[in-house]
Design a protein around this nucleic acid. Structure first.
Length: 560
RNA sequence: GGCCCUAUCGUCUAACGGUUAGGACACUAGAUUCUCAAUCUAGCAAUACGGGUUCGAUUCCCGUUAGGGUCACCA
């Protein structure tokens, strides 16, 4: 292309934007004064209104790499596709990162402010920077305008497939690559919009080798695709490919951690970097999280649409302790984490020596909610009581107002309720998330008990036990009931009541002569439990009764 | 279809070329002065298949098969 034609294209491209020169821009992005070993990592989501749990996984890796090397971990919002952008999504990302203790060192914060010297950290605000680099590429004969229509491109791909050729804009299929200046000028004259394409000099039959920090030595075909660099949709924004190279160069990223799905386009990114005289980056391609398809399709990628747990909002709403989610993800990333965690149960998770090399190179790990809940139960069970109380109340205050208000009415009572079976060597582990609170503690409060617990529980009980048996069991218990005795005496009393009402006191008797009894002690206890709590699974009855107090116990039992 | 990645219990994974193939979660059974939970004990359970190389292969090589990714003016 002649210089005049280049100038014409450049003018059309930058229009009236204030595009600086490339060297001027680079001057305003000085070297970070960090140690040799320091890693500068980036987490770069698109603001599509949804933060994927896999993104938390990737961000966690970024954070660890930076923190452990005294480097920097920054957040960059990749919003070059204005069609897909969802309002408010940008801030949501910052908020949710903070919720997972992944607040970036630079970039948008939960309070709405942007910090850092290497910004702006939102790509749409960097348009003129990309344009400066695009101009540079035109001048270097490494970019050219393409006027092909969508239909033309689709037809070409169709043709390529029918001829069993590799689809794409390359070689003879790159129809605007080798046009004469006259043809290009004519197209410009007609006012048609164009996309600025990269002029690749790669050869698909040659291979390029690079070292992936996770996968090791990689060998892929060179890129020969003339991909779009600047869109023609009127936004003048760059595609991911150009934006990634320019931004990570200017922001001084030392390692590109990103999903495995980017692996095939890495040769392209290397070529773009080289065409700009930029040293190619170090890449680390991380595995993508999957899930078992509930409809029986086997393993597949976690999908935003079908799997609620793919959205971090699910975890935040269910209110799993963040520390346990993190611990679980860390265990997925480094299998030696489990041992470390067992040996250092109290330790700050950030002290775990994370290693990229230990990251499994294998296929996408499956999200195992059961295992995560196991972490969560341990975490909650071993939590100091004050912390536990705070979390329960905090959750209720936001998500279960009725429970919260009841809990606040008699805070001494609530304190006792929340302590149940949490002390000693083997605390209960039936709470894995704070949203369990409603079901776990609601029945201690009379109005909630009467509306939410008792009716359905009685229905279930009716299916197995006759009303007469229910009434007689309760009566029998009440007749011997003495609230102010120790546990052993209380238990003896209950056994007496059960025996009197026709229940076997030990399993052997019941097994030997089942026809002689209404059931075992367990069956008797179940009736009492249901009338007292509206549940068939609760902590120890004696403890519950002691906390509820004689009056409440008698009232609930008499209601039968 | 081309290219790429991957293949160890149901799941996540460990094993300098020499292990009885280990752990965790899940599951099953038993123990525990009531239910449930917890806890303890025991149990179940894997190197995709076929060829090489080697004294010896889960490990290295080749092929087959299977899964995943990617081939957009989405990132």
């Amino acid at each position: 292309m002649s210089d005049e034609l280049k100038d014409r294209i450049i003018k059309l491209l930058v229009k009236d934007e204030l595009v600086s020169t490339r060297s001027k821009i680079q001057d305003s992005y000085p070297d970070r004064s960090l140690s040799e070993a320091a890693e500068v990592t980036r987490f770069c989501p698109s603001p599509t209104g949804f933060v994927h749990i896999g993104a938390i996984f990737t961000a966690t890796i970024c954070q660890y790499l930076a923190r452990q090397s005294d480097g920097v971990y920054f957040l960059r919002i990749e919003d070059t596709d204005k069609k897909r952008e969802v309002e408010g999504a940008k801030q949501l990302i910052a908020n949710q990162l903070t919720a997972f203790d992944l607040t970036p060192d630079e970039g948008l914060q939960a309070n709405g402010e942007e910090i850092g010297e290497y910004g702006p950290y939102t790509q749409s605000e960097r348009k003129n920077i990309y344009l400066a680099y695009a101009v540079d590429l035109i001048k270097r004969d490494r970019a050219y305008p393409c006027f092909a229509t969508k239909d033309e491109l689709d037809a070409a791909v169709k043709d390529q497939i029918s001829k069993k050729l590799r689809p794409g804009y390359y070689g003879e299929w790159a129809i605007w690559r080798d046009r004469t200046d006259e043809e290009t000028s004519q197209a410009l004259d007609s006012g048609k919009s164009f996309v600025l394409r990269f002029k690749s000099i790669g050869n698909h039959n040659k291979r390029i080798e690079f070292n992936d920090a996770i996968k090791g030595k990689m060998s892929l075909p060179e890129n020969d695709l003339d991909v779009p660099l600047i869109k023609s949709d009127g936004s003048n924004l760059p595609t991911y490919h150009l934006a990634h190279v320019v931004d990570d160069f200017l922001m001084k990223s030392t390692i590109i951690t990103r999903g495995e799905e980017w692996l095939p386009s890495t040769p392209l990114h290397i070529e773009i970097a080289q065409s700009l005289g930029i040293e190619p980056f170090k890449y680390a391609h991380t595995p993508v999280l999957s899930i078992i398809d509930p409809s029986g399709g086997g393993k597949r990628k976690l999908s935003k649409r079908r799997d609620p747990e793919a959205d971090v909002d699910f975890w935040i709403k269910a209110a799993y302790p963040m520390r346990s989610i993190k611990a679980y993800l860390l265990g997925l990333a480094n299998s030696n984490f489990e041992d470390w965690y067992k040996q250092n149960p109290e330790a700050d998770l950030s002290d775990f020596p994370f290693s990229l090399k230990k990251l499994s190179t294998s296929r996408s790990p499956l999200l195992d909610i059961k295992k995560l809940e196991d972490y969560a139960k341990d975490e909650i069970a071993s939590m100091p009581q004050s912390h536990f109380n705070k979390e329960v109340l905090q959750w209720a205050n936001i998500h279960d107002k009725t429970l919260y208000e009841e809990m606040m009415i008699d805070s001494d009572y609530t304190k006792k309720v929340l302590c149940i079976e949490r002390e000693g060597e083997n605390p209960r582990k039936d709470v894995s998330k704070w949203s369990d609170s409603s079901d776990q503690f609601g029945y201690f409060y009379d109005s909630i008990f009467e509306s939410n617990f008792l009716p359905s529980a009685i229905c279930d009980l009716d299916e197995h036990v006759s009303t007469e048996d229910q009434i007689s069991a309760i009566k029998s218990l009440l007749s011997t009931y003495d609230h102010d005795v120790d546990k052993d005496t209380w238990f003896e009393n209950m056994k007496l009541a059960a025996k009197k009402d026709g229940y076997a006191l030990n399993r052997k008797d019941l097994k030997a002569n089942p026809e002689n009894f209404k059931g075992g002690l367990a069956d008797f206890a179940k009736i009492i439990r249901v009338y007292l709590t509206g549940k068939t699974r609760t902590p120890d009855l004696y403890t519950i009764m002691q906390i509820m107090g004689a009056e409440r116990v008698k009232k609930r039992l008499s209601s039968s």
